[in-house]
Nucleic acid binder design. Sequence first.
DNA 1: GGAGACATGTAAGTGGTTACATGATTCC
DNA 2: GGAATCATGTAACCACTTACATGTCTCC
Lengths: 188, 188
Amino acid sequence: MSLQHGILGLLSYKSMSGYDLNKVFNESINHFWSAQLSQIYRVLGNLEDKGYVSSQVEHQEGRPDKKIYSITDEGKKEFRNWMNDNPEQLLSPIRDEFMIRIFFSSLLPKEETIFQLERYNKQAQELLKHCHSEDQVIDKYAEELSLPNDKLYWRLTLKKGKMITEALVRWSEECIEELKQAQKEHQK
Amino acid sequence: MSLQHGILGLLSYKSMSGYDLNKVFNESINHFWSAQLSQIYRVLGNLEDKGYVSSQVEHQEGRPDKKIYSITDEGKKEFRNWMNDNPEQLLSPIRDEFMIRIFFSSLLPKEETIFQLERYNKQAQELLKHCHSEDQVIDKYAEELSLPNDKLYWRLTLKKGKMITEALVRWSEECIEELKQAQKEHQK
DNA sequence: GGAGACATGTAAGTGGTTACATGATTCC
DNA sequence: GGAATCATGTAACCACTTACATGTCTCC
């Protein structure tokens, strides 16, 4: 459901091919909803079957043909309905494999868990750096699509990304600290 | 994969029926990996097919029979292998429908978005309260199963839950603040 | 008398991943 | 010569959700 509506939302900004959509997606919705290109193509097919988008082939010299998708009036209606119909439960279910590993880490030597937490911390810091560079991307898109009203909301989603990622960085640091402490206690 | 290994992990603590497993699951792994009871039954079936768990039926007076699952040596080996084999990418992909809605919220009146953010904030606070009450659950299980070494790691997963949820509470508050501000600017 | 705990599962459907298939052009 | 970009998709498989099916006991 969500991916479908995310794609409808992007197409309401601008008609695009699946390939281009994927690029825009990766710089926006992908931060809170991951998707493979193949899945995007499938969803576009489904949306077309339902009449929410229409497509038209654009011939290109020296490059493969493009299939440009546009949102239909039906699609716009569907998207607006979805936007107006929030679920009871707003918090999304969590699926965090790494936490399962941490949960059962008494099986492993503490050094190994510390090592993995350090990797985790590095990846979180990397992601945080990436988040900080996204401010410019927002400016770029807001200008390109001339949608100044949307910038505010895009920033709010980015802000969430930053805050969560900062929490992950801090969490993993504190975990490492605690485990090192526990190691010392044990050596005494 | 993860659910399978989470279940193997819990069964390595203690043999249980699917029904009991579900209860333990809901007070532990469910905080970072959600699952329906029906899915747990199916995974148990798969694990049995693979020889990672074995089952034996326990007859009960006045209550339905129980099917007690136990982890096999094969299962223990599989679980340990999984624990030793961390993926490259430790950060889990995000799937957050609410963020898609925020992203496209320029479509809606600001009051509506504020209203939904307030609901979000309330739910996050509710969850945070719940997290704080979990400390006792950890103590209870550690004693019941006499696994004092595991408590440390269980606490680390709980800590992550708290930190993330605190970030969600703060984020939604700041969003509401920003939107109210934007509303005022507009009225001028 | 009804709700909820106890207990097990199947069936249908959805949404997603990974791998595969094709083939030209451009840049290093 | 090889990798990356451009461009489209299908097929097989997997994990998960929702709804359905069954039936007893206990507590209010």
